[in-house]
Design a protein around this nucleic acid. Structure first.
Length: 268
DNA sequence: AACGCGCCCTGTCCGC
DNA sequence: TGCGGACAGGGCGCGT
């Protein structure tokens, strides 16, 4: 469910509730996530203080001191919430009590999420560049398209080994904003288009973060609030509806197994 | 090597 | 109303 803007929104929402607080109890109710939660997870976390909350790609990285990192990934259906989970709420896999009555819980019906402790975020094996950092430059993108000429530009944008954090919604939206058809072979991108696309990715992500993410089915931030960006989506899940720019009906297709939306007139 | 596909899992929606 | 199938925002392992 959550893409980079949603994860960034969750990071900002939990921050004031957790920073500086000590973890007093960890209740692991279900270990079977994408990878099993380690048997010593709770034991290692209890008693530690949360010093900060960072984000790397779509991963939340909580600094719990002594170089130890508490890593949380929300997968497709994960939520990381502040407060008491309703007693009858299913799929609440982890509950963390903080000192002075604060509480966090992790809920993930599909169990594609991840919860682990690591010494180094490099243990996650994320090698792609952050799309909101300077390293994601027009030159970088153009060079990447020259190394992977045959794949579609949308697959390349979503390949976490190259660019880490861009998911299906925002790849579609950025390609619309840049006027590039998602199925275009990467090798056919011009330098000018690479530059436009980098700008479009940045702008789309920043606008989505400013709107606190997109709530399509059931995304909520850690305080339970919906995002607003779904109302501003130009193409995602708008197949058959008129393009906001030219009025042409938005088309839907499938690229490398994922739904792809584009305007046949604005995107070439 | 690099790419695309299928799978992990539950919930929802749609057509019959 | 019930049921089967398609699909969902992510990521990984495998086969080609």
């Amino acid at each position: 469910m959550p893409g980079l803007p949603e994860v960034e929104t969750v990071r900002r929402t939990i921050l004031p509730h957790v920073v500086g607080r000590r973890i007093v109890r960890v209740d692991v109710r279900e270990t079977r996530l994408r990878r099993p939660i380690a048997p010593d997870f709770a034991h290692r976390l209890v008693g530690r203080r949360i010093h900060g909350v960072a984000r790397r790609a779509k991963y939340l990285v909580l600094d719990v001191g002594d170089g130890l990192l508490w890593i949380v990934h929300l997968g497709m259906s994960g939520r990381f919430c502040v407060g008491e989970p309703p007693g009858d709420l299913p799929h609440v896999h982890v509950v963390v009590d903080l000192e002075a009555g604060g509480r966090l819980y992790f809920r993930d019906p599909r169990r594609f999420g991840l919860m682990l402790l690591a010494r180094d975020e490099r243990d996650l094996g994320i090698v792609g560049v952050e799309p909101l950092e300077a390293e994601f430059s027009p030159h970088f993108l153009w060079q990447t398209t020259r190394r992977h000429r045959r794949t579609s530009i949308k697959s390349l944008l979503m390949d976490q080994r190259r660019i880490a954090g861009l998911g299906n919604i925002y790849a579609n939206e950025a390609l619309f904003a840049a006027g590039i058809r998602p199925t275009r072979r990467s090798g056919k991108l011009t330098r000018a288009e690479s530059e436009r696309l980098v700008g479009a990715v940045r702008e789309v992500l920043e606008r989505a973060i400013a709107s606190r993410g997109s709530s399509l089915l059931d995304y909520r931030d850690a305080d339970g609030n919906e995002g607003e960006f779904q109302r501003l989506l130009a193409v995602y899940e708008r197949d058959g509806e008129p393009c906001r720019r030219c009025g042409e009906p938005i088309k839907r297709g499938v690229t490398t197994g994922r739904s792809t939306f584009y305007c046949p007139r604005c995107q070439r």
